[in-house]
Nucleic acid binder design. Structure first.
Length: 254
DNA sequence: ATGGCAGCGCGCCGCTGA
């Protein structure tokens, strides 16, 4: 079984890439972020035709998340029930007995921004909710765009990024607090190339110069860690014409 | 030096993203 996450930066623009990528990578579960569309616009028929069922929650212009699955999606939850939020950033479903949580963590903009305070509050509430979910789901995976580079290995220029949003201590502590619930960054279970990133700025030849960050993650509970045989970032679609600025991350479970 | 891409909105610039 393969589970994956991809921030598509507009599903309207990226639908052809999504369908191509699924043809090339017929994963069992794919979590999407930044669909940027209201639910009435969601391309259900095209995704069904590709062999996937789908649950989603979106809004105009910003945010929006979805879970695609070959197997049925059960017990779908939209948003964190503990956090009143107009922004559509979370969707969860049980698939093949695994609780799948798809998350689009707020960006935060800058550490002195109101959006940063919102990001930290959002993450604190996510932790509270996940703690509850973990009481009833021993097999749980939380996949998504965390907008946090866990440590300096995940940053192309740690000096330039030191203390900046996506790399600041408080965000990293919030991520550590999630991990401390009993989760593991699946990417670091395995030997990985240095300078492995999942996002590259569109500007200044970011991808070509590999000036990126690793901010898209798949966290697993211990029972899924035991089943996890691989985790990889697929840089291929970042090279396609008119790409998302993020690459998909794929974890393989036995 | 706050730029630079990209997507979106009743658009022709301003916002958000990361």
């Amino acid at each position: 079984m393969q589970i994956a996450t991809w921030n598509v930066n507009s599903l309207k623009v990226r639908l052809p890439h999504l369908l191509q990528w699924l043809t090339d990578n017929p994963v069992d579960v794919l979590c999407l972020q930044e669909t940027k569309m209201t639910d009435d616009k969601f391309p259900v028929a095209e995704i069904n035709a590709a062999g996937y069922q789908v649950a989603f929650t979106g809004q105009k212009t910003y945010n929006g998340v979805a879970i695609l699955s070959k197997l049925p999606l059960e017990d779908v939850v939209r948003n964190n029930p503990r956090f009143a939020d107009e922004q559509q950033r979370i969707i969860a479903a049980t698939i093949g007995g695994i609780r799948i949580v798809c998350a689009y963590v707020p960006n935060g903009q800058s550490v002195d921004s109101d959006k940063y305070a919102y990001k930290l509050a959002w993450l604190a509430s996510l932790r509270e909710w996940l703690a509850e979910e973990l009481q009833t789901h021993t097999e749980l995976a939380i996949l998504g765009d965390y907008n946090i580079a866990p440590d300096d290995r995940d940053v192309h220029d740690p000096v330039a990024w030191a203390g900046q949003v996506l790399c600041s201590d408080r965000e990293r502590a919030a991520l550590t607090a999630l991990v401390d619930l009993g989760l593991t960054d699946s990417y670091r279970l395995f030997e990985q190339a240095e300078k492995s990133f999942s996002w590259w700025d569109y500007r200044q030849l970011g991808f070509r110069l590999n000036k990126g960050l690793r901010i898209d993650h798949i966290l697993l509970t211990a029972s899924l860690v035991a089943r996890c045989t691989a985790c990889a970032i697929d840089r291929a679609p970042r090279k396609w014409e008119q790409p998302s600025d993020h690459a998909p991350v794929v974890a393989t479970l036995s």
